[in-house]
Design a protein around this nucleic acid. Structure first.
Lengths: 144, 144
DNA sequence: TTGAAATTGATAAACTGTATCAAAAAGGAT
DNA sequence: ATCCTTTTTGATACAGTTTATCAATTTCAA
């Protein structure tokens, strides 16, 4: 049977090999947990993994998630006061309309905007990995 | 002669009135300094205002900038390890291209994207007050 | 002018993430 | 399997940013 997350495990091992780093039980455990979610914080993962390995340290989680970023498996984003580590292999990206009156959030997707984003990026020599678009305003109910 | 920032001062006073808050010398001073810039951190403003009022406390700056956010005059954006307070009355809103490799930030503006955002918003019955667009990727140097 | 309520400044505390370092583990050579 | 060098780990100290605390001060309506 095919092991879970074989592709990502391969990417990680290749990165480790190229940089004289070692494959450890902790890195395997954290990768496995990481790939099951769209995004997670170090703190959340710490508590989540505490049951499987009570001695796994928080510093190790941070170090490993940062390692995943370097390997191209994850991406760090500052959200609120914490850092979210996004699972890059997860594709379905959506943007948000947020009502500043009542807090209502509407998700949307717009291909034209995405295309223009690519355009802007390439004009500046960038290759986009992901993006974040939030529109803040008043919904029809709160406008009155 | 028209006082500087009369409109924003009015918005602030209205907010204060609605919430039983008071108009103070410090709030006026901080608003005045805030409106002169596109975005600033609390720490930067603290140093900037130290000459005008050496006894102005850092906590007051934080409290006041957060108050501006609640009044709709500012918007907090977490950038790296610090919080940037954006002046949303500033029309030339700029978005950011952020390199996940080296952290380089390129500012840009794109009218077509803004127009499409308006379109999406109105389709959903929203009136946009402000927005946030961040594109994450690799700059030309980091791609190699 | 008075007095209740809000604000301020100074600083302690909380929070997130990184640095340190002795002990343990990995993995190639033997 | 054993040895040996290098890397990693876990525990915790530390650094940087933001918030909480609280006595003294200021605001503003009566």
């Amino acid at each position: 049977m095919m092991p879970k997350h074989a592709k990502e495990m391969g990417i990680l091992k290749e990165h480790l090999g190229k940089h004289q780093l070692k494959f450890t039980r902790q890195r395997e455990l954290i990768l496995d947990a990481f790939l099951k979610q769209e995004h997670i914080t170090a703190e959340a993962m710490y508590h989540q993994l505490a049951r499987k390995d009570p001695h796994l340290g928080l510093a190790t989680i941070y170090r490993t998630l940062n390692l995943f970023c370097e390997a191209g498996l994850a991406q760090a984003r500052h959200f609120g006061t914490q850092t979210q580590y996004d699972n890059i292999s997860h594709k379905g990206h959506h943007d948000h309309l947020i009502c500043t009156g009542c807090g209502k959030i509407v998700e949307f997707e717009n291909c034209d905007i995405e295309r223009l984003q690519e355009e802007v990026a390439s004009q500046n020599g960038f290759t986009i990995q992901t993006h974040r678009l939030e529109l803040y305003g008043l919904c029809s109910r709160c406008r009155h």
